[in-house]
Design a protein around this nucleic acid. Structure first.
Lengths: 339, 339
DNA sequence: CTGTTAGCGCCTTCAA
DNA sequence: TTGAAGGCGCTAACAG
């Protein structure tokens, strides 16, 4: 490992001058700088992160906190893309990404609390939390109280917190407009009470603006049971929709899983897709490419969201006393054959 | 941040004694040790990783190298579980996990080479590479030549390299036995030439052992086109299988995507599943839960593989001149309704 | 068993 | 514009 010392020796300069040249801070003559840089490249110099952190009392690590769902449902593909976005942006600024997985099943008090303590103990330069929900918010407050910059990746504006939010409201609204332009005029929304509020708000907003009828199919609650269960509920729901007095000609489902169930169900009932019924899903999960017909869906801009969150965090790290803000990332319609 | 110094002051001991007590190395009287530990907890002491690394010239970071496929196909769910396994095991030993994503599309020479250089420049304590393939092997050799311990997570034994391999041969073999026990006696394998060798070997081995007929349906090549393409090939292949002179009563597909295509195709041809045809997929991807009927599949033990790889790497870090070895992780049949 | 001494590589302060 | 000195928190040698 070549160090500043090695470069200094070769350049016949003091370690200090070399250090300044490399960091580009303070006065260094153009001549010295050029010489230092050349030798640094020759020797393949790499600043020693440990030494730099130790001395500057700063850490160049960003902790990312994510959650492992019941059947690993919560994360996977969507999360991975966020990681990649975060990683790429951080790497560009010389920061490391340190991933942490909280187990949403274990009681917050024990294992997770210990993990959070460990994370704080590393005193990272900043923290990105993937998710909203009470747990995320309380972690946010906890970390903020320790003077650590935090950013949330959420699904809606979170008051008083810095976040990058994936704009579900806008996503669903756009989908309604898209269907309307395609000539559909009885556009329904299918979901569950309580767990898809911003999506329903987007739907309501759009149908109101367009002067369309509001048709919502909604189970009173969804109480776990895994992904397959949501699919089954979709199959069941398709019966209600197909048999409705005034049958819709399009449905937007709150998730791809539900949409996949709807498609399977409609097939049983002989409702042709997309002719008699357009179906739109939500999230653009892998299975959306495998329904038949392929599922048009409102896709999450995960990579982008990750990048922006990292960007926002880096800003906060540099200027810690900036005011609170929220940045929305638009969702995009991924069009397949179900519409 | 409380440091050893703070503890030393309180305990009226030298910094060094405190250090030894905390690390549990060297001689410390039981009394001193107990006192130190108590105060450390009281003060919420956390060793400063930067200082430790700097002084001991060791890095407590493990780099994990993974690959982003064409349409992000390669990774996602399966990769995520490996990450979690690796992370958990490393964290238990006080190591950090540092994720890196290589873009399989960009030319190895440019972006990836730079990234590899960066990784090596961090001088991590060790490296885990997720994947086999020539690129992985050359990275392995590159890193090994820099004296950095490396472990591969692969799908087969790799000669001369340390790896944890997910035992596809055994997985397929088990699946054949399972089908045979269920009374099937014309068990086919569906895949592509060249890209599923160890799976075919497992199939061949099993049918030979059981004295069954070998029936392989195989496209000559698969030349990209994304996941949907594999699904379509499955649909097409189902025609060949359904129309075969001596029609099989079971098929093992080389991937869940292909199996999903087969199921969709068989439905069109009126081949009832599982009565007339049992179908088994490979990997237990998310979509396996959403075919109808649900797909029985040979599941990857990703979490386990991740844990073992981390374990093996930690061993190598501690004793760098151990001999080469390979550890297999068995695959398990996830049984659903397609068999 | 314990304390002293001497850095690891870098950055900050201050003097030249 | 440059250099010398000091120290971040910790560990490794060695001396008590």
């Amino acid at each position: 490992m070549t160090s500043l010392k090695d470069i200094a020796k070769r350049a016949k300069l003091s370690i200090n001058t070399v250090s300044r040249a490399i960091r580009g801070s303070g006065y260094v003559s153009a001549e010295s700088r050029e010489k230092v840089m050349r030798i640094a490249v020759e020797l393949g110099y790499r600043p020693n992160r440990a030494a730099r952190s130790l001395r500057s009392r700063k850490n160049f690590e960003v902790a990312v906190i994510s959650f492992l769902g019941a059947d690993n449902s919560s994360g996977d593909q969507l999360m991975m893309e966020k990681f990649v976005g975060i990683k790429r942006r951080l790497a560009a600024s010389g920061y490391e990404m340190n991933l942490h997985f909280l187990d949403i099943n274990s009681e917050f008090e024990s294992a997770n609390l210990k993990l959070l303590d460990d994370i704080a103990g590393q005193s990272p330069a900043g923290i990105i939390i993937i998710g909203d929900g009470e747990l995320c918010k309380s972690i946010y407050r906890l970390m903020e109280s320790k003077q650590t910059p935090v950013v949330l990746i959420s699904y809606d504006v979170i008051p008083e917190m810095d976040c990058v939010y994936i704009d579900r409201l806008q996503g669903v609204r756009d989908a309604v407009y898209y269907l309307a332009e395609k000539g559909r005029n009885k556009i329904a929304f299918a979901g569950f009470h309580g767990i898809c509020c911003n999506r329903i708000r987007g739907y309501r907003k759009a149908v109101k603006e367009l002067g369309l009828q509001e048709i919502i199919f909604s189970e009173n609650s969804y109480s776990g049971g895994g992904l397959g269960r949501i699919f089954d509920l979709g199959v069941a729901m398709s019966g209600d929709i197909a048999g409705a007095k005034s049958r819709p000609d399009a449905v937007i489902a709150y998730s791809d899983y539900l949409a996949a169930g709807l498609i399977a169900g409609f097939r049983e009932y002989g409702v042709r897709i997309p002719e008699a019924m357009a179906v739109i899903g939500f999230d653009n999960r892998e299975l959306a490419a495998f329904t038949s017909p392929g599922l048009t869906t409102i896709a999450q801009p995960n990579f982008k969201a990750g990048e922006l969150a990292a960007e926002m965090l880096l800003d906060k790290i540099i200027k810690p006393d900036e005011r609170v803000n929220a940045v929305g990332v638009p969702m995009n319609l991924k069009i397949r054959n179900s519409t």
